[in-house]
Design a binder for these strands. Sequence first.
DNA 1: AATGCCCACAACCGCAGATTG
DNA 2: TCAATCTGCGGTTGTGGGCAT
Length: 331
Amino acid sequence: MMRTPIASNDESGLKKGPWSPEEDKILVDFIEKHGHGSWRALPRLAGLNRCGKSCRLRWTNYLRPDIKRGKFSDEEEQLIINLHSALGNKWAAIASHLPGRTDNEIKNLWNTHLKKKLMQMGLDPVTHRPRTDNLNLLSNLQQILAAAKIVSSLTNPSALSWLQSDATLQLLQNMYARPTASNSDPLINPFRTLNSLPDSYSLLNDLLGFNLHSNLQNLYDGNSLSQIQPNFQNFEAPQQPTQHLNGGRNTSFRESQKQFGSTNNIADPSLSSSLPNLVSASPERSPFKEAENIMVNSKDCSTSFELTWGDFMDEETTETYWKGFIDRPTF
DNA sequence: AATGCCCACAACCGCAGATTG
DNA sequence: TCAATCTGCGGTTGTGGGCAT
C-alpha cells in the first residue's frame, strides 16, 4: 500500500518522507542516463531536493528495474526461513540468494509474517529451535497443542484424533481458567488442587502418556527433515474453538488469526515444509533465564496467573467438559 | 457512521566498515 | 597512517488502509 505523500523538510531544507511520482521520474531518468556515480552528488546534479542517502535507498529498494515486486512465493518464504536459520538477521546476505528481492523487503516479510509463523509452530524465531520456556508457552495453548500433534503423529497416532477434537482445546482452556466457585471444586476440576501455576508440558504429558518435551527435542535433534516431513501430510486443520487464548486477553477469532497467522498453522503441509535446519541456540536468549526472570519479577504466582489468564474465559467450567476429559481414551 | 486497533511496508536513523586523498 | 567521506546494513518509526466494534 502506498503512503500518501506528505511534504516534509529537515533543517537543511532537504525533503524527507515519501517520494512523489515526479521525483521518482527525475531519479530514474537521471540514473538511466548517467548512472548513479556519487550518491552524494546525484541529487544536486539531477535537480532533486533530497539527500544522497534518500536517493540511494529509493533506487535500491524501489526503483531499480530488476526489482521483483509482488507476493513472495512459498518457495521464496521457505528459502528465507532456511537462510535465516543459518545466517541470522543478515538481510543483505539473505537477499543475495533471492534475485530481485531487496533486504528491506525480506526484513519486512520476516518481521510481519515469518517470525509469527515460526512462533506458531512452536519454534523460537531467533534460534529456530523448539521453544522450551514453559511460562511463555502458557500464553499459547494452541501452540502447545500443535507441538503435541507433531509428536503424537510420530509416536502415538491414536492420540492425535483426541488432540484434534474441538473439545480438547476447550478442556485445556478451562484448566487454566481463573478459579471460580464451580471449577475450584476438585471433583469438577482436579487441576485446581495443584495450587500452583500449571506447567503446560507436564499437563500434556499427563494427558498423552508420554513426555512431550523430550519427544519434541528428539524430533528436531535426531531426525532429518526428510524423515519428519511426511508425517505432516496427514494433519487436518484443527477445529476452531469458540474462543482463543491470546496472552490472557479475550479476543475474537480474527484477532487470533492476526496474531498467530493462518488458522491452518501446523496442519498446513506447506508450512510444515518450512521447518528450518538446526542452528545453535542464541546465547543472548535463554528461555530458562527468561523464565527465571519472570518468576523473580512476579512475587506472587497466583496474582500473575490471574492477570495473565483471568480475562479470557466467558464461561464457567462445567462438568460436561470434565466428563469429556475423564472419559478420554487411553493411548 | 464514527472510532479505535492492528497490520504492512516505505522510509528514516544511526552505526560500522570500506574507500579515498 | 590517519582523518574525512562514502556506502551498506540492520533496527526502528510513521502513516494509511482494513477491519471489528
